[in-house]
Amino acid sequence: MRRFLIAGGLVATLAMMSSAALADPAKVMIPANPGGGWDGAGRQTMAALEQAGIFTEGVSFTNKGGAAGTIGLAEFVRTAKGDDNALLVTGVIMVGGIISNNTPVSLKDTTPLARLTNEYNAIAVPADSPIKTPQDFLAALKADPGALSVGGGSAGGADHVMLAQLAKAAGAPVDKINFVSFSGGEILAALGGGKIKAAISGASEFRPFAETGRIRIIAVSGPNRLEGLDAPTLTESGIPIEMGNWRGFVGGPDMTDAGRTAWLERFEKLHTADAWKETLKAQGWEDAYLAGDDFVKFIDAENEKWSASLKEVGILN
């Protein structure tokens, strides 16, 4: 019996030592379950920081998924007070989630650091669709919004909001749009098989299918055309809409100025590091570096845009 006790104690001490051995590691809260987009953003970014030799003190990750990341946000605001090394992965989905779930905490309770990546949306149609240009799409939307079934991610997400903005631009009634929610790869099968008339999703999701000629990308929602893709941006087609799935990092509620400066410097170094460029390429992310006060302003603008759009699509009263 005593031997068991000793063994148990040994394991326990070992475990404690291994966690105490790290000097002052970063504590990264990932507001999603392991394996998703935010999880990858958090883990890959920290790995790049380590590889580039910018931050090598070690990292511990906590996954706390749910409710568009707002559960992780609430936990982060509660636990990260006064810890300059506590970081939270955030993104456009959280901005929408905070508004539609009406959560008691918001990104205002954190210290925004930097937006790092973005993935722009694209509009795609089945290969044999009569819709060929963004204008065709708007015309179809105006003619009979209900008849144009458009697939996308979950209701109230970036895809849904983008469709609402398109309807508005077309002068069609926003409450009549026919948004069909999909998850995962099903949307590609439904679009390729002509079960839906069009789809809005991340551009990189569509590209392989567009290359094999099963679907056609008619527009992208970024400020620039995508390399090697013959599809106009919405802006150059005269539709002033930009919509992307951005991700970034924020710090704890009362992050000190020293801590904030230190992390801003680290992200700036990361932005130019080769390791980061490799990560971006491997993950198919677009560089969307925006740091410090500019990032704070950007979040405010996103907040306004989303509050308005979510009301229009009927998610908010």
């Binding site: 998924g65 749910g66 409710a67 568009a68 707002t70 559960i71 609430a74 539609s100 779930n101 959560t103 979950s154 209701a155 109230g156 849904h160 069909v180 929610s181 998850s183 699509v313 009927g314 998610i315």
Partner: peptide, 20 residues
């Protein structure tokens, strides 16, 4: 949880944790 098709919360009894 949240209804994916319309984004409405269903039977969550005011709990954020149940939204998913």
């Amino acid at each position: 949880g949240i209804d994916t098709q319309t984004g409405q919360a269903r039977m969550v009894f005011g709990s954020l944790e149940l939204l998913d």
